[in-house]
Amino acid sequence: MAKTIDYGNLMHDAMRGLIRKVLDGVAKDGLPGDHHFFITFDTMHPDVELADWLSDRYPEEMTIVIQHWFDNLDVTDDGVAITLNFGDSPEPLYIPYDAIRTFVDPSVEFGLRFETQDYDVEEMEGDEIPHDAEVKSFERKDETDTSGTATDGPKEAEIVSLDKFRK
């Protein structure tokens, strides 16, 4: 039995399960309403599959948009396969959930960010154990600030780290 409960990895698994469930619903029923997704992933992950010209163009990470045109969306327990249009050229992609760095649905101001670092939790103690999972909660700012003037700056994101909940 482990010395500690690895809440960071448990949270990552839960968040990836949420992504799988959302994409599975889209595969079955299509995108509802104004929903659309920005998914950033690690193109160097060993299980990512994409055309050579895409990996050459995006050697570290790539952000895809699932919105107007996509085809062959296939959601599995380990990842998602999809065909997207790149300059009038349909390209198949396979993205394992472990390669996903961010998942954002701007239509409802929801986002997840995964910090991917390797730690040997068994050899760490107490406060040394990092909890890298972060959940972004995007909140709309008021249309006017306290002085009554309109604000037209970008919306701010509140990032909630799991460290907040550690004792």
Rank of each mutant, 00 (worst) to 15 (best):
Val104Phe: 03
Val80Trp: 02
Glu91Cys: 14
Asp98Met: 01
Pro92Tyr: 07
Pro106Glu: 03
Ser89Val: 12
Asn85Ile: 09
Glu115Arg: 12
Ile129Gln: 12
Pro92Asn: 10
Asp127Tyr: 06
Val104Gly: 00
Asp77His: 08
Val80Cys: 10
Asn72Trp: 05
Ser89Trp: 14
Asp105Ser: 04
Thr116Tyr: 04
Gly87Pro: 05
Gly126Thr: 06
Glu125Ile: 05
Asp78Ile: 04
Phe103Asp: 00
Ile100Met: 02
Glu123Lys: 13
Glu109Ser: 08
Phe70Val: 08
Met124Leu: 15
Asp120Val: 09
Glu123Thr: 15
Asp118Tyr: 07
Glu122Val: 09
His131Asp: 14
His68Ala: 11
Leu93Gly: 07
Glu115Trp: 09
Glu123Ser: 15
Asp77Gly: 07
Thr76Ile: 11
Asp105Glu: 15
His131Leu: 07
Met62Lys: 13
Leu84Phe: 12
Thr63Gln: 14
Glu125Leu: 09
Asp77Glu: 14
Arg101Thr: 04
Pro90Ser: 08
Ile100Gln: 00
Phe86Lys: 12
Pro96Gln: 03
Arg101Trp: 02
Tyr119Arg: 08
Pro106Gly: 04
Glu122Leu: 11
Thr116Cys: 04
Met62Leu: 14
Pro92Ile: 05
Tyr119Thr: 07
Leu73Tyr: 11
Gln67Arg: 14
Ala99Trp: 00
Gln67Leu: 06
Asn85Tyr: 11
Ile64Phe: 12
Asn72Ser: 11
Asp71Leu: 11
Ser89Lys: 12
Asn72Met: 10
Val65Ile: 15
Gln67Asn: 13
Thr83Pro: 05
Val108Phe: 02
Arg113Asp: 05
Glu61Gln: 15
Glu122Thr: 06
Phe114Ile: 02
Pro130Gly: 13
Leu93Phe: 12
Val65Pro: 03
Gly111Met: 01
Val65Glu: 15
His131Thr: 10
Tyr94Asp: 04
Thr76Asp: 12
Leu93Asp: 03
Phe114Ala: 02
Asp78Lys: 09
Val75Ala: 04
Asn85Glu: 11
Asp118Pro: 02
Glu109Gln: 07
Asp120Met: 04
Asp98Tyr: 00
Thr116Met: 04
Met62Tyr: 10
Asp88Trp: 10
Phe70Leu: 10
Ile129Asp: 05
Pro106Tyr: 01
Tyr119Asp: 05
Val108His: 01
Ser89Ala: 10
Thr76Arg: 10
Asp74Thr: 11
Val121Ser: 03
Tyr97Pro: 00
Arg113Asn: 07
Val65Ala: 15
Asp127Lys: 08
Trp69His: 12
Val104Gln: 03
Ala99Ile: 01
Asp78Tyr: 08
Thr63Asn: 08
Glu125Cys: 05
Pro106Asn: 04
Leu93Glu: 04
Gly111Arg: 00
Thr76Glu: 09
Pro92Glu: 11
Tyr97His: 01
Asp105Val: 03
Glu128Asn: 14
Asn85Lys: 11
Ile82Tyr: 04
Asn72Ile: 03
Leu84Glu: 05
Ser107Asn: 02
Val75His: 02
Pro130Val: 10
Leu93Met: 12
Asp71Ser: 15
Ala99Asp: 00
Ile95Gln: 01
Asp120Arg: 06
Tyr97Asp: 01
Thr63Trp: 13
Glu115Gly: 06
Gly111Val: 01
Phe70Gln: 03
